[in-house]
Simulated assay, not measured.
Amino acid sequence: MSKPKKKRTKTKIKVPPGHRLIWRPWITVNGKRIHASERGIKAFPIVVPVAA
């Protein structure tokens, strides 16, 4: 019998003033590209500062 999959809960991402939230299909960690699809998601959320 296989284990039941965990349900992923949505978490609210807090975006501080002067920043915005962007979504990317991959991120770079230690020089290696990690694709969101490898983690079972569509994209990674990234908080970036807004240019003035």
Results as ranks from 00 to 15, higher is better:
Ile46Asn: 13
Met1Gly: 12
Lys7Leu: 10
Lys32His: 03
Ala51Gln: 11
Pro45Gln: 11
Lys6Cys: 04
Lys10His: 04
Arg24Glu: 12
Gly31Trp: 02
Thr28Gln: 14
Ile22Tyr: 03
Lys42Val: 05
Val50Cys: 11
Lys10Thr: 05
Pro4Asp: 05
Leu21Glu: 05
Val15Arg: 03
Pro4Asn: 06
Gly40Arg: 01
His19Gly: 09
Gly18Tyr: 05
Lys14Arg: 08
Lys42Glu: 12
Val29Ser: 06
Arg33Pro: 01
Phe44Gly: 00
Ile46Thr: 12
Pro17His: 08
Lys5Ser: 07
Gly31Cys: 05
Arg20Lys: 13
Lys6Leu: 11
Thr28Leu: 11
Thr9Arg: 10
Arg8Leu: 09
Trp23Pro: 00
Arg20Pro: 01
Lys10Ala: 13
Ser2Thr: 09
Pro16Ile: 04
Pro4Thr: 07
Pro4Met: 04
Val48Ser: 07
Glu38Arg: 04
His35Asp: 15
Leu21Gln: 08
Trp23Cys: 14
Ile13Leu: 09
Lys12Ala: 12
Phe44Arg: 00
Trp23Met: 15
Pro25Trp: 02
Trp23Ile: 09
Lys12Asp: 10
Val29Phe: 02
Val15Leu: 05
Ile13Ser: 11
Gly31Arg: 04
Arg39Ser: 12
Val29Gln: 14
Ile34Val: 14
Ser2Val: 09
Val50Leu: 13
Arg39Asp: 15
Val15Trp: 01
Lys7Gly: 05
Ala36Ile: 01
Val48Trp: 01
His19Arg: 12
Ser2Gly: 13
Val48Asn: 04
Lys3Asn: 10
Val29Ile: 13
Ala36Leu: 02
Pro25Leu: 12
Lys32Trp: 00
Ile34Lys: 11
Val47Gln: 03
Val29Glu: 13
Ala52Cys: 09
Arg39Leu: 13
Gly31Lys: 06
Gly31Tyr: 02
Ala52Gln: 14
Ser37Gly: 09
Trp26Cys: 12
Ala43Lys: 05
Lys42Cys: 03
Arg39Cys: 14
Val47Gly: 04
Trp26Arg: 11
Val15Ala: 09
Lys12Gly: 02
Phe44Cys: 01
Ile22Lys: 10
Met1Ala: 13
Met1Cys: 07
Thr9Val: 08
Val47Leu: 07
Leu21Cys: 07
Asn30Ala: 12
Arg24Pro: 00
Arg8Ile: 06
Val47His: 01
Gly18Thr: 06
Lys42Trp: 02
Lys32Pro: 00
Ala36Gln: 01
Thr9Glu: 13
Pro4Cys: 02
Val47Pro: 00
Ile34Phe: 05
Thr11Asn: 08
Pro25His: 12
Met1Trp: 03
Arg39Val: 04
Ile13Val: 15
Gly40Val: 00
Pro49Gly: 08
Ala43Pro: 00
Gly40His: 03
Ile41Gly: 03
Arg39Ala: 14
Lys14Leu: 09
Ile22Val: 14
Arg24Thr: 10
Val50Gly: 02
Trp26Met: 06
Trp23Ser: 14
Trp23Lys: 12
Thr11Gly: 07
Ile46Met: 11
Glu38Tyr: 02
Val29Thr: 10
Lys6Pro: 00
Ile27Gln: 00
Val47Tyr: 01
Pro4Lys: 13
Lys5Val: 05
Arg33Thr: 11
Gly40Lys: 02
Ile27His: 00
Lys42Phe: 03
Arg24Met: 09
Lys6Glu: 06
Gly40Cys: 03
